[in-house]
Amino acid sequence: MNFHISYKAQRMFLILGFLIVPLALLVTFSLYPAIKLVLYSFTSWNGLTTSYPWVGLHNYIEIFRNPALFGVFIHNFSYFIGGLVQNVIALGFALLLSKKVKIRNGFRSILFIPYMLNAVAVVYIFQFMYQDNGAINTILRVVGLGALATDWIGNNHVINWALAFVSLWEYFPFNMVIYLAAIQSIPEDMYEAALLDGASAWQTLWYVTLPNLRAIIQVNLLLTVSGALEAFNIPFIMTNSAPAAATFLTQTMNVAFVFNNYGLASAMAIVLLVIVVLVISIQRKIVGGGDDVV
């Protein structure tokens, strides 16, 4: 048999053939659920029945009116601050480790270990450390700082900072590795030129290294800021989302799975998305950086 198809048609056929699978996957697992989520957010669906009572914007109004829902963002704030500190620490270690330090690779491995550990295991470790007779309080008492010892999980003023610290400890190695890779990809001749011009170490850092890292700092901040707004696994595992440690996401879970209001929970998910996008745009305005990232 002989096929007489024009080159153009063959091209179209090929392109479609290659696109159909990824497009089908995209639509099934990404677009369809997203559209459904938006639709649910205008209903009071209870997650079970086949009726989807339309409630208009009521869910969105409820989120901002009910302090138990929107108010918990105050708990996310500590993760946000923790995220900023985390980036500073990660950048600091990356700068140190990019120099010719003795057993550099050994330090790198040790610092990277927290990120390699299973997230659940990390939370359990800290659960024991934060107990009244746990490691932290014991050490504080031994070195004579017993006055600082507190019930890290029980004290409402401390708990979110304690949890944010777990997040910092677990995720800073990831930022560090990214910074390290970026630092090492800065061309050596730039440093040579700086050296010839008589730049001090501080000037080299400020005028050569950091400007070259701008795009990467942007990416890392994006990851940590959205991570802070979406903090979930640590309060969920450590405190079972107790009121003192509830974050916006654990509240969303509660609304969906305890109070069976999937409509409201969907609206919360969308509000969170909008907030993440807003915060990131603000951050991009402040930090600046190339348009080529994110």
């Binding site: 209870n46 009121p243 509660n254 109070f259």
Partner: peptide, 22 residues
């Protein structure tokens, strides 16, 4: 009414809220 008011009477959430409050 429990679901709308988000007061968890059957699951212990309400007790947590009260005990946690100052």
């Amino acid at each position: 009414l429990e679901n709308t008011s988000q007061i968890d009477i059957n699951g212990g959430g309400a007790v947590q809220t009260v005990l946690n409050a100052p």
